[in-house]
């Protein structure tokens, strides 16, 4: 399948998800279950994407483990996104030097 077709579908779906409620929808969602579901979705999605894929992200389990540990610790102390992301990467790189 041509890559352009994939990109068109990706971009189209992503745009519609943002555009439809932003442009047309004015009412509030009433269902408490659905509101809660939408509240939890980002965390559930990001976690399912990250665990366990992050352990295979750097092509080496040990360096990935070091990066993950640093990310978890820094995130626990509420450090900014960039700091967490770059420190994890640095930790994975430095660990790789010793293997």
């Amino acid at each position: 399948m041509p890559i352009a077709l994939y990109i068109l579908v990706m971009a189209g779906v992503t745009y519609l998800i943002r555009m439809i409620p932003f442009t047309f929808f004015r009412k509030k969602i009433k269902s408490r279950f659905f509101r809660s579901f939408l509240y939890y979705i980002p965390y559930a999605v990001l976690t399912a994407m990250t665990i366990p894929a992050i352990f295979y992200s750097t092509e080496n389990f040990i360096t990935a483990l070091a990066g993950t540990a640093v990310a978890l610790i820094l995130a626990f102390f509420d450090l900014p996104l960039i700091v967490v992301a770059l420190s994890a990467s640095l930790a994975a790189f430095l660990t790789g030097l010793f293997l």
Partner: peptide, 28 residues
């Protein structure tokens, strides 16, 4: 060695988004 280490950036950003609310809210 560098580009492999950079591939963890996106995932660690996700960790940075998820962990603080999960720490404060047991339901999350």
């Amino acid at each position: 060695s560098v580009s492999d280490a950079m591939k963890i950036v996106l995932y660690s950003m996700f960790i940075a988004i998820v962990v603080p609310p999960a720490r404060k809210d047991r339901r999350v």
